[in-house]
Design a protein around this nucleic acid. Structure first.
Lengths: 328, 328
DNA sequence: TACAGTTACGGACCGCGTAAGCATA
DNA sequence: TATGCTTACGCGGTCCGTAACTGTA
């Protein structure tokens, strides 16, 4: 048994039992993987895959068990390598981030620029996901997930509070609600068709909860994952937009009128989530510290070891954060 | 990085930084280990050991971290091998048991004979320990620990109740206490010099607790780990013996008079403890089932996976167990 | 002088890639 | 016919053991 054999094995499993595809992904040839798989099966003394004819049809029951353990072997081997790369001050590597469009488009870019300054060789892979799916990316190999929740921290991984944010309500220029001298009521908002995120449809959404609590049924006119699309459709007059404050650029979006309606919706918390059991590269923690300057990377390491006692520093609100970075 | 390199690395660490000794233990040559260590250090980019002159002096801080992770890699690799050996129905292997002298001498032998019938190639290594140290052997690579406690199950590993047992009080032929028509009181026992286990001296011992509760200070005249020594010294007239009922052979120890004093001492429970995170070979579970026939090996496997819901079957008392095996 | 670790060298093995063979849809 | 796995073969790397060398108690 070698690490190579185990790496090939999980590559085959991850490629949906297609050896040729797996070979491409590990930068090797198909006969190489085929042979190593055979040798591994010979050594273990049983088939890891069920064959039909020549092609792999399914994973055997013991195969499932072996693959699960092989993943843990490779995880720890990867941890050793990450440990070493950190110690060497290695400036290149991979960084896979599972997150939503809003974070990727509006929150990450200002952090990634200085990160690339310090770690020029890092290639960053943003995996766009829906609000609920980013955490699942951690299980598929992502190094970091950025998620939002209105309540308790996400259950999986090591969750660190980054900043709190609020929803803003925007209307196109000339919309009747923009002519009010006062804040619109929830009832008035509920009468308008609403343009918002896909996740707002879900019953667990805090946006929906705000309307539900007041006994209103909002008319969701259009949903997207993409904040830019939401703004576009608001401009086109499809309704009023409800989106994350991060997604509103004071300059580029000056034509959209912000309605003073924040108080209707509970604030949300943005969390960074690190996979448990995996040693992060230094740049992963550096990115978190760039997004949330109140964090100390040593505390992050302690949290991953399980030796972090105490509280995370109170995360700033998004607007506090914006002021701080503007003055810096 | 290869599995071989990691194996050599932990072998060197376990051999106290003596490469020559480590080489013997892994059945390889010293230059081989030396070179592989160097290659690993080159690949990682830093020293795993501090050198003074040519010899290894200490493990570096990152070295500690790497070795810990290397152990986990090798553990999982070993698990895959164990899994495979079980599936192949392999009848040979190693079985290291950390336990006390009494278990090793009186409890294990009748179980080991049938075990060797079913698994002829298994080489069994009994690591004799004091009562408190058997659990620590699990961390040093033992496959099974047999321990006793009067209260709750041991904290580490997967603990399975095997049987309950009691202490017996024995006196040499002609001892004054043997001429009583009634059971001796605790006060009468406390007046005699007592010959018992080393562990009886410890404050957490349930033997000591029994005396303490009644306000007596027992005079421990002689202690040993070895039940045979205790019996020998009782025969020599050094005092009355208090030992585990398992250690008393009805035939060979017929000359020692058992005093009816069981009620003074709380019963103890014998536990089998399996290391968490390690896949046991079939014969390890078979041994447990031979010691404690009420156990189902499938439940044991489920307990190791963490999917065992429910209660362990009520363990028999030692005397029930003896009757059952005699009638079988 | 004995001991422990490093360096040097030759042989065996092994893993890889190329190329050809073969079953299935 | 195209796809995808297996087998065959030659090359290069590497791991190992023997042997000689070097620093230390």
């Amino acid at each position: 048994m070698t690490l190579t054999q185990l790496r090939y094995l999980v590559a085959i499993a991850d490629a949906g039992l297609n050896i040729t595809l797996a070979a491409e992904r590990v930068h090797a040839t198909q006969p190489g993987l085929s042979k190593q798989l055979k040798q591994l099966e010979d050594e273990l003394g049983f088939q890891l895959f069920l064959r039909r004819g020549r092609s792999l049809e399914a994973i055997t029951a013991p195969g499932v068990e072996v693959i699960a353990r092989a993943r843990r072997v490779l995880l720890e081997a990867g941890n050793i390598r990450a440990l070493a790369a950190n110690l060497r001050g290695e400036v290149q590597g991979e960084l896979a981030i599972g997150t939503t469009h809003t974070q990727a488009r509006y929150v990450l870019p200002p952090a990634i620029a200085p990160l690339r300054g310090r770690y020029p060789g890092v290639s960053i892979h943003i995996v766009p996901t829906g609000e609920g799916e980013a955490l699942a990316e951690l299980g598929r190999g992502a190094d970091l997930a950025l998620v939002s929740s209105s309540g308790s921290p996400p259950p999986t991984g090591i969750a660190v509070p980054l900043y709190s944010w609020q929803r803003v309500v925007v209307a196109p220029h000339g919309h009747p609600l923009t002519r009010l001298e006062r804040a619109p009521t929830l009832a008035e908002l509920a009468r308008e068709p609403i343009v918002s995120y896909e996740s707002s449809l879900k019953p667990e959404s805090s946006l929906r909860a705000a309307f539900d609590r007041a006994g209103f049924e909002p008319r969701i006119g259009f949903t997207a994952r993409d904040a830019d699309l939401i703004k576009t459709y608001v401009r086109a007059g499809l309704g009023i937009g409800i989106l994350a404050e991060m997604a509103l650029d004071p300059v580029a979006d000056a034509d959209l009128i912000q309605l003073p309606a924040r108080q209707h919706f509970a604030p949300c918390m943005a969390w960074g989530v690190l996979p448990r059991e995996r040693v992060p590269r230094d740049y992963t923690l550096a990115l978190l510290a760039l997004i949330a300057p109140q964090l100390d990377t040593r505390d992050l390491r302690r949290a991953l070891e399980g030796t972090f006692e105490g509280q995370w520093p109170t995360p700033p609100t998004w607007s506090e954060r914006a002021c701080a970075s503007a003055s810096a």
